[in-house]
Structure formats: structure tokens, C-alpha cells
Amino acid sequence: MKYLAAIGKYFIMVWEVFKKPTKWSIMKSLILKEIDELIYGSMGIIIFIAFFIGGVVTIQTALNLTNPLIPKSLIGFATRQSVILEFAPTFTSIIMVGKVGSYITSSIGTMRVTEQIDALEVMGVNSLNYLVFPKIVAMMFYPFAVAIAMYVGILGGWVAAVFGEYAPSGEFIQGLQLDLIPFHITYAFIKTFVFAFAIATIPSFHGFYMKGGALEVGKASTTAFVWTSVVIIISNYVLTQLLLG
């Protein structure tokens, strides 16, 4: 019952976010600030993780293809499919929940504790629109980050294959080009948008409605991380079944 009430409260919050919008001149600068903070500020960790995950996927695939009849190009094919379908959108999103999600919960939660949200409300500002809407818009640029993660992941795979001597460059690239289904890329981006919305709104919900002091801000960040990860994992399964199943 408690969870149902929380889910209902979450959807009411999402509805409230889009009501009584903040003046555009102020909103524009808030959105740019959030893009810088949430997306641009996360590019380093996204690129780092994508590069090494791509490399690991290549090595694992190569080490498991022991049959000499299987062409080496399959390593490139498996790397591309794994990175595009799962590692770039889902794995990166879980990392983003940890980095961006906890930042969102703690920043909004601290504003709640220090009565800054009450100050906004007293002034007549729709605090949900002011605080959460710029984060949602900024996170809609997250698919660009995932596109870069896809590219860097495959590059990491190529580096691991060529310099680790698991597959020659030509065969790896041939595998990358093999049987590409464009809808797989569309599917990856559709789920990235869903994850982006979850990463922007669920931690905001936990920060906005938190009660207590500094200790509770930390607890709210942990709870937000757990629930956002759960939502991402479940929606990943549902979307995969709906779009590819």
C-alpha cells in the first residue's frame, strides 16, 4: 500500500512539473546549467567506462570462440551488438544513476532541509517546475552521450582486438558491418529516452519529498539510487520484450 501511494505521488509530481511554467528567460539559463552539470560533466566517466567495457566484451568474446571454423569477424559483430544493445544504453545508465541521480537527490534534498524550497513556494514559484523541469530537458540530451558511448565502446573493442592480437583489424571491422539492423539502434535510443526520464525524475522525487536533516539527505540518495536502478532494469526488460520480442 505504501509503495502504491508513493507511485501515485510520483505521477502527481510529474504532472505538477509541467504546470505553471517558469519564465523562459530564467528557464533557459537553468536548462543550460543542467546540461553542463548533468551531461557535459558526465562525459569523462561515460567515455572511460565505455572504452574499457568495449575492450572487455571483445576479449571475453574472443576467448570463448575457440572453434577454428568460427570466423574472427564474429568478435567484431558480437562487440557491436553487445555495446549498442546493452552496454552503452543500460550499463551507462546505471553508472549515471549513481553519478547524476545522487547529485539530483542531494541537491534538491538539501534545498528542502534548508527551507529553500519553502522559500520558492512562498514566493509563488512552482518549485517542481523550477527545479525538476530543467533536469528533465537536460537529460533529453543524454542519448547524445549514449551515442558517444557506443562509438567509444566499439573503438575500445577494436583496440583490444587489434593490440591484444585477438582479431586482425580488417576482420574486426568486417564483423562490425555484418548484418546491421538499423532498428536495433532505434531500440537502443528509445530505451535511452525512457532511462533519461527515470534518471531525472525518480531522484528528484526522493529529494523533493524527503523529510528530516542531513542524514536523511544521504539516505534519500541511496534510496533514489536503488529505485532508479530497479526501474531501469525492469523497463529495460519490458521495452526489449515489446520492441524486439
Binding site: 505553471k20 538539501t110 534548508t114 527551507e115 529553500q116 519553502d118 522559500a119 513556494e121 512562498v122 514566493m123 509563488g124 512552482n126
Partner: peptide, 22 residues
Amino acid sequence: SDQQRDLRQEMGMVFQGSALFD
């Protein structure tokens, strides 16, 4: 709710911890 928001714009509040935007 819109009228309430308009009325709130006629209110000023000094919070216990000042509640200034960091």
C-alpha cells in the same frame, strides 16, 4: 490555485535559517 500563487507574491518571508539560494 493561480489566485493563491498571486496572493503569495504579496507575501515576504524571512526563514529561520534565512533560506538563501546557495
